[in-house]
Amino acid sequence: MTEHPPLLLLHGVMMSANAWSVVVPMLSDRYDVLAPTAAGHRGGPALTGRASVAVLTDHTERYLDELGLDTVHVAGNSLGGWMAVELARRGRARSVCGLSPAGFWTPGSPDQTRSRSRLRFVRNLTRASAPVMPVAMRSATVRRLSMRDIAAHGDRLTPQAATTAATDLLHCTAGLELLATTESVAPLDPLPCPVTFAWPELDRIFPQQVNGTTAQQLVPGAKHIVLPGTGHVPMIDDPALCARVIAESAA
């Protein structure tokens, strides 16, 4: 570790630390960047028992404890954004930047089931195309179409990065349990630290007009911004914008 402040990056469900591969170098000159892979995800710690957001957050807390870090700046996408909120609730965050954070729904209501169905569709489509994945991902058109539910410009990923993302998804053991969770974000007021929620303009999973409205009610002190031209995983569409927003949030 250096004298830079620590910054923890948390990825979305069925992804891995690879989701931040382009963003990390853009932040490493100002922060000690930590980008672990979540428990139950490809490359992360194994899980015993049922997967839940609370359990994954427990694992992340232990990770910080092992590094001797009481508090860190936290940025997360989707599931990672939700975990960032929970770390703030536990007093472990200096600041939070949630990029399309999950959990802002009523369990079992259409706003959860719709997003869950889209993510399951992405998983099933990826599984069905797995045998031809390395060859298919050489096509920019295939990358854009196969990722249209999570990115506005999936073709901006390299073929190797797109194949890695698909492999992460297929080898995530916690994915289905997390998609079926009955958890949701509980109210957080007052804020324990500064919180910014960044909503991708073209998000097909958690649209701002639905999930952002719920977030305003549950976390009334948070700042809300829009990420133009981006989809649910904005690090794919505009990593430089994501890095800038994260840095501004931590500042």
Rank of each mutant, 00 (worst) to 15 (best):
Y63I: 02
T60V: 15
F104G: 00
D65I: 00
V96E: 04
P36V: 05
N77K: 08
G103V: 09
R89H: 03
T141E: 14
A128H: 11
T37L: 04
T37I: 09
F121S: 13
L64W: 09
P110C: 04
G49I: 10
P36A: 06
M133E: 14
G80K: 01
S100V: 12
A93P: 00
A84M: 02
G91N: 06
S52Y: 03
E66A: 15
T57C: 09
R123W: 11
R120P: 00
R62M: 13
T37K: 04
R148N: 12
S139A: 13
G44A: 11
L64S: 00
V122P: 00
T37E: 04
R62G: 13
V122G: 00
V23A: 11
G80C: 08
P25W: 06
T113M: 15
R94G: 08
V74F: 07
V142G: 07
L27W: 11
V132Q: 11
D70C: 12
S129K: 10
V96K: 03
R114M: 12
S52L: 02
V122L: 14
V135R: 08
P107T: 09
A152E: 14
V135D: 10
S115R: 14
T57K: 01
L34V: 07
R138T: 09
S95H: 09
A93R: 01
A140W: 01
S117C: 10
L34D: 03
V33I: 14
R92H: 07
R42M: 13
T126N: 10
M26F: 06
S146E: 03
T48N: 08
L56G: 02
T71D: 01
P134Y: 10
D29L: 10
S52V: 06
M26V: 04
L99M: 14
W82R: 06
D29Q: 15
F121L: 12
A75K: 05
S117W: 11
W82C: 03
S95V: 02
D111P: 10
T48V: 12
G76H: 02
